[in-house]
């Protein structure tokens, strides 16, 4: 039953996506070109990485609002480790990602060890991590990275933006992990009924910590890619990223109550939002008009699925 409804939402959304792409292609000749689509892939990589793991988090019945701040902190640390501590850039980026991952671990630890609800715990760390980024950076930007570093964010491999390869690999790995492994099944079980999952011997706390740690890692990785794409660091990077990611996940059919959802759905959700933003802009609609339409569509899509499910139930 649950698998069927799941497919249902994704099929609806996929159809919506196809209709949308065709409609937008008619609206603007520049929309449906390889160069534009690949470029859009480049622009959505950071949100995409975060949203994929956010899917895991939301399926466990949690939420992670601190991802934007982790992105900002990682970006700042990459610059500070490289310039102020004089580490090789590769090591600096690696160390920054490690710190970002640790931030995710802290979220998971606070949530499981102290039983703080995820919304509150990550609301607090949202302020804390952003504050650390501001304090450490002292409002200074770090610029002037070596050219090879820009390959990650601005270059291509085999004609495809470098970071899009990372996103694709990440998406495949995550889909397989969620759909076809024991860990994936535990994640669904925890989201569906945490108490039952605990009593059936699943490692509830360990799994949750792992999921939040992974979320920190994804945000940190996105942070380094972001620095490479825009070639500078700022402590306000990634502000509001959490809401973009959650919108994509929810639009993709993952239940905010946990227990239901898929990576494919999230990816379709991402594509729909990104192509709306891009296509409407190309068709001459201003950013604020696009915001209104995305809001309407988010409510509309969930309303449709809910209505549909109610009739079937």
């Amino acid at each position: 039953m649950s698998l069927r409804t799941l497919l249902r939402h994704e099929t609806i959304l996929a159809l919506v996506a196809v209709v949308l792409l065709v409609a937008l292609a008619f609206q603007s000749a520049q929309f449906f070109t390889g160069a534009n689509l690949l470029n859009q892939g480049r622009l959505m990589t950071e949100v995409g990485l975060v949203a994929i793991i956010m899917t895991f988090v939301i399926i466990t019945g949690g939420i992670d609002l601190s991802v934007g701040s982790i992105l900002g902190l990682t970006a700042i640390l990459t610059g500070v480790f490289w310039q102020n501590l004089g580490l090789p850039l590769m090591a600096a980026a690696g160390l920054a990602i490690a710190v970002g991952t640790f931030c995710g671990f802290v979220n998971g630890f606070v949530i499981t060890r102290f039983g703080v609800p995820p919304l509150i715990a990550t609301l607090a760390t949202l302020a804390l991590y952003r504050g650390l980024a501001e304090g450490i950076s002292q409002a200074r930007s770090v610029r002037g990275y070596p050219d090879w570093f820009y390959v990650l964010g601005q270059g291509n491999i085999l004609g495809v933006p470098t970071q899009l390869w990372i996103l694709i690999a990440f998406a495949i790995l995550a889909s397989v992990l969620l759909a076809a492994t024991r860990i994936g099944r535990s994640i669904y079980a925890i989201g569906a009924n945490e108490v039952a999952a605990f009593f059936s011997g699943l490692p509830v706390n360990r799994t949750k910590i792992a999921v939040y740690t992974a979320s920190g890692f994804a945000a940190a990785l996105a942070g380094v890619i972001f620095v490479s794409r825009v070639s500078t660091t700022r402590s306000d990077m990634g502000t509001g990223l959490e809401l973009d990611a959650i919108t994509a996940v929810v639009l993709g059919g993952t239940s905010i109550y946990g227990g239901r959802g898929s990576v494919i759905g999230t990816l379709i959700g991402l594509v729909v939002i990104q192509s709306l933003k891009n296509g409407l802009s190309l068709a001459g609609i201003k950013a604020e008009g696009t915001a209104v339409l995305i809001g309407l569509m988010l409510i509309g899509a969930i309303l449709m699925t809910t209505a549909f499910n109610k009739r079937r139930a």
Partner: peptide, 10 residues
């Protein structure tokens, strides 16, 4: 950045 990028394409 995203907005400018879109206008370049358009």
């Amino acid at each position: 950045i995203t907005l400018i990028d879109n206008y370049i394409t358009s």
